[in-house]
């Protein structure tokens, strides 16, 4: 953060940034007020909560892809892993969230560290293939252990969560909890982006060979991004399972992985805020489109193709570009 303060180019843009921060704060507050707007529509609040979880999930993938350029086609693996581990812990051990969630995240980080040590050393294409395979393995695991996971029927009967012994029942409380996690994760990600670590990550995405030759531990930093991404993804999964009181094997399917990728691509890879918005917009759009037609996968696939061809920077990337151009002309 402070190294940028010493950068005059960014100071020059400070007035524009002040405006941006004010706008962001406004949006953040508006998001926090959602439970008051939806008092008469409990379903809408639930959808909003799902959208917030999707946003956390999208952010978790962008931590990997946006920072290092590695594209994961199996990010649902971590989402599902988190959901099942948290659900099982809650069911079998304790419903105390402050135990369940950290344990789940740590478990995901450990698994990611072991698999990632091999995965991040591969070229991008092999990495993409292996992440897809890894998610299929996790999918298969659900069925291997169907005695405890419930197999095809999914994991049912996850008990009501407690925080420090207090049960979390109210939909509003849940929403604020999820929203708080999202804001904290986003703030942390934005901070890291501007820290030396974030810059080192960007250098890897930009030119990994050069990064290696200036003495940056490329594979180590890629692994760090992979582990953090998996941890946050598992956190999103854990929250989902505890929120819904259930987990289904669909969470681990490659459609789910595709959806997460879509959040990120739609929002613009590497923009952090874009994928968060992408996750929210997409969750609402998916709900309304799938209530209109059963063929939403066709629209989904078609939109995916269209965005990659026409707007590789994502919809928000295109809007941002237009915004910068307008600003440029205004000067």
């Amino acid at each position: 953060m402070s190294d940028l303060a010493a950068n005059p180019a960014l100071e020059r843009r400070a007035s524009g940034r002040g405006l941006l921060i004010a706008g962001a704060a406004l949006v953040a507050v508006a998001g926090a007020l959602v439970p008051f707007w939806t008092t008469g529509a409990p379903f809408l609040l639930m959808l909003a909560s799902q959208a917030v979880i999707a946003a956390i999930l999208a952010l978790s993938l962008d931590l990997l892809t946006g920072n290092t350029g590695l594209l994961s086609f199996g990010h649902a693996a971590w989402f599902g892993f988190g959901a099942y581990v948290a659900g099982l812990l809650a069911k079998l051990v304790t419903p105390e969230m402050l135990i369940v969630v950290p344990t789940t995240v740590i478990a995901a980080c450990l698994v990611a560290a072991v698999t990632g040590a091999v995965l991040v050393r591969q070229i991008g294409k092999t990495f993409a293939i292996l992440t897809l395979a890894l998610s299929q393995i996790m999918f298969a695991l659900v069925f291997v252990a169907s005695d405890i996971t419930g197999g095809e029927d999914g994991l049912q009967g996850v008990p009501v969560m407690t925080v420090l012994g207090q049960p979390v029942v109210q939909a509003q409380t849940w929403y604020w909890l999820l929203y708080g996690v999202l804001l904290a994760a986003l703030a942390a990600s934005l901070h890291i982006r501007r820290s030396p670590l974030g810059r080192a990550w960007l250098s890897i995405r930009e030119n990994a060979e050069r990064a290696r030759f200036i003495g940056i531990d490329v594979n180590g930093l890629k692994l760090l991004a992979f582990v953090m991404s998996a941890g946050l993804g598992a956190l999103a999964g854990a929250l989902l399972a505890l929120f819904n009181g259930a987990a289904s094997p669909d969470l681990l399917s490659w459609f789910e992985s595709g959806k997460i990728l879509m959040f990120v691509v739609l929002g613009g890879v590497g923009t952090l805020v874009g994928p968060v918005l992408g996750g929210i917009v997409f969750t609402f759009a998916e709900h309304y489109v799938s209530s209109l037609t059963s063929a939403w996968l066709i629209y989904f696939g078609g939109l995916f193709i269209l965005i990659v061809i026409v707007a590789p920077g994502g919809i928000f990337g295109v809007l941002g570009h237009a915004w910068r151009r307008m600003q440029g002309q205004g000067r």
Binding site: H191, I192, S195, P196, L221
Partner: peptide, 9 residues
């Protein structure tokens, strides 16, 4: 200090 998350002024 490439991995630093916090950097002193």
């Amino acid at each position: 200090i490439s991995r630093a998350v916090w950097q002193s002024r």
